[in-house]
Amino acid sequence: MQRILLFVYSIRAFLLFVGLELVAAWMLLNYNSRQGAVFLNSSGQFTGSILNTKDSFLEYFYLGSTNEALSEKNARLLKRLENLSPLGDTTFFELDSGFAHTFDFWSAKVINNSLHLHQNYLTLNKGKKQGIKVGMGVFNEQGVIGRVTGVSTNFATVISLLHTDLLVSSKIKHSGVIASTRWDGVDSKRAKLLYVPRHVEVEVGDTVVTSGFNATFPEGIHIGVIDAVNEGEETNYLDIGLEFSTDFSKLSYVYLVENSMRAELDTLTSKTNLLPNDGQ
């Protein structure tokens, strides 16, 4: 018995090494699970507040471009408001609130971002307390950014579109063909458009937008522009490359969107035993 203990004692460094590596492996394997709430990541209370402070120092350097983007968005919204607001001499028919009010919007600020690894995440400066929930879509005036995967009281973690596991239900705008966008981990400016059948005519320069088929994003938010169409190796599908419309290296203010009908939609699809067509 004593010799066993002595032996264990003599290899204690190795045992500690194995133990610590197992903890690391456990962290790695557990992180991407659905219920992997906010545990040891950048949206923790302490980490979040540090990142927030860091961001408040750095944001001055980006004020110019941030202002420009916001005023651009403002101008576009004003234009749309002009088109929507009823003229004095026409009848105005208000839609039932059930139709009109499907999507709720929030705004938040990116306080942490990465784009060079294969699994990239962002951190936002709003959380549970401000009404942010897991599953909300994140976008800015340029296009889609990602989806909320974890929230703490004051911060939220977002799985970036630059994450090799995230699929976004998309469609080619002019032909209406449904596909999925997925990042291949090579270049932070380009992604792949998957599941477009060979018979579809796709042209370089076509715009890709969200399809609105999954409950995360409303229809028509920009994802990117197709810049390469090849036959590819797969027998059924084309190999399509697209260039993101979002510049992930300069994210500042973002919008979050929640489908208030999501719960109902999910119950319906699960009741009818259909998988939601979003690949997520």
Binding site: A24, Y31, N41, S42
Partner: peptide
């Protein structure tokens, strides 16, 4: 890892 959002990856490498 906490700041990089890379769970266990830096930990595993640096412990090695």
């Amino acid at each position: 890892d906490v700041f990089y959002d890379t769970p266990g990856m830096h930990t595993g490498s640096i412990v090695l």
